[in-house]
Design a protein around this nucleic acid. Structure first.
Lengths: 305, 305
DNA sequence: GGCGATGTATAGTTATTCTCTATCGCAGAC
DNA sequence: GTCTGCGATAGAGAATAACTATACATCGCC
């Protein structure tokens, strides 16, 4: 019993004439005859009474035809589902973002994505890189926004933008007079950092290796956010390093804090999208990338490749 | 897209492993691989993300699998329907009976059929032979009980019993003293007959051709039944001829009427079953025949052939 | 009662499609 | 590096479904 057989069956039930039904199915009359006979043999029931005058459907035949129509209808739904789901911009996209990007990127990203792909709702999770990677591989996430380097088997990455680091200090800080700050000097001051697990913490420590053992390193509680740290800086608890997207929007509306760039060459982080190499909705990823690049993130430089 | 493909699809969605799914479907792994790929090409969507680690179903894939399961379920119903309908003694049987048999046969027939085939309800229609033949050919009836001769293209008949004719007269009638009656004498008396269209009318007139022009022929209204005629006879309006099944049950409980057989050779009618030669439920016909022969119809002689 | 018209079934052939075995290729693990 | 697991691919063979041609059955007609 195949779907084709059922189509023949339904056609014959409608036409009550083997020749006409065959024509409607674009097959020859013997093809239809044989198919119906095969069905009858397989089901071990007589579906039609054939006679020279006309073709009559049997009682049981009528019931089976009705069921066959239901089957064909449901089968047609499969094609409909496929058509509807063919658009990579249709259906929810599960997006992961690291903590140090989410609060600055998402407010811009979400409306842009919604505009570019109205039928692709975003399901967003913020987390550490390691957790995002795990979810991505498990399939709980489709795409993640992380900082490079990021290497995982089965995962491909695409750099999106570079983001310079900034020094954030309380207003009136001694360094305020300097146009830019040398990374080495970070070890001199009380430096507030995110807790372990945040990749940004490690990136800052890489910029200033001496800070690892520096006297000024103040451990912040794990899970603290950049916003928390910024408040702490504003109260004079120390200085910190922020990515430009987090640091640069401030000066306009905050006179408790001062932002300074680093001496050239500016340290920076490279932000990338990552997804399973097998992920089929590349169009959706393109939309995310475009939306990120279209977001007003101060100081960032798109990575064109 | 075939039902087999859908079975493979569902199996893969359950197993998340091409090899295991193939095994469960009793096919080789390449067979399943190819089938899934074909489905994906046909639907133009990616149903599964394959990687070395495991097989992940896509969002759209999951929806399509759910629909495929529904299709397979409905398709399975077809087999169930076929199994349930395979029994020729299952499902209603549309039975037609001529007016001059129905009232005497059906009260016996119905309980017997119900006992022999409890899941075969009878849908009964009483009518003239011509009307029954028409309905039978149209498919509105499955089997009819008629008097022979009955020849119709595409219709086969099977004689069931012979039924002798009787003469019915009012009690105290002049012929009451005779043990049997000669057919020729019918022309002498006022003879009450059914209206045109009833085959029994014609059969009686054949027994006594002179009656056609006989003075005693009293036309009864068309549509009158044997019962009506019997009451008329009881009131002395004339005599009539009845089949034995209608005439013989009476004497026990009616002293207004007298029944006499004809002189040998007794005229009789041959009652038969008729159905479309294409009608597939021969088992149902056998049940009807047996039930008729099992009914206590006085005077009738089974036709064995 | 033969005969043509109509309509379905069957035969035989061809084409397609399905399934198999064997093998490749990739990716992750050791 | 090599090994291993697993899915994809290639090519051959088998099964099946399609076609054309024709047989067969029935009915209406002369």
């Amino acid at each position: 019993m195949t779907l084709t057989d059922l189509r023949y069956l339904v056609a014959l039930a409608r036409e009550r004439h083997f020749g006409h039904a065959a024509e409607r199915c674009n097959v020859s009359q013997p093809t239809l005859s044989v198919a119906i006979k095969k069905l009858e043999d397989e089901l071990a029931v007589t579906l039609f009474e054939r006679s020279a005058a006309d073709v009559k459907i049997t009682d049981i035949g009528a019931r089976i035809v009705a069921q066959a129509e239901k089957v064909l209808l449901e089968a047609g739904q499969i094609k409909e589902l496929a058509t509807a789901g063919r658009d990579p911009l249709s259906g929810p996209l599960k997006l992961g973002v690291i903590y140090t990007i989410g609060p600055y990127l998402l407010p811009h990203l979400i409306p842009r994505v919604h505009e570019a792909a109205p039928s692709m709702p975003l399901l967003i999770q913020e987390n550490y890189t390691a957790r995002l990677a795990e979810s991505l591989k498990r399939g709980d996430l489709d795409v993640i926004v992380v900082a490079l380097p990021f290497e995982e088997p089965g995962i491909v990455t695409q750099a999106v933008y570079d983001e310079p680091f900034r020094v954030l200090m309380p207003a009136g800080h001694a360094w305020e007079k300097d146009e830019s700050i040398s990374a080495a000097r970070l070890a001199e001051a009380p430096l507030l950092l995110l807790g372990a697990g945040n990749c940004f913490r490690d990136q800052v420590l890489e910029v200033c290796p001496m800070c690892r053992s520096g006297e000024g390193l103040q451990r912040t509680l794990e899970g603290s956010s950049l916003e928390t740290i910024r408040h702490m800086v504003a109260t004079g608890a120390g200085i910190t390093v922020l990515p430009s997207s987090a640091a640069d929007p401030l000066p306009g509306g905050n006179n408790l804090l001062t932002v300074r760039p680093f001496d050239a060459p500016e340290p920076f982080r490279r932000i990338a999208l990552a997804w399973r190499v097998t992920y089929p909705r590349s169009g959706a990823i393109d939309v995310i990338r475009s939306a990120i690049l279209g977001s007003p993130l101060p100081g960032v430089r798109p990575v064109t490749r």
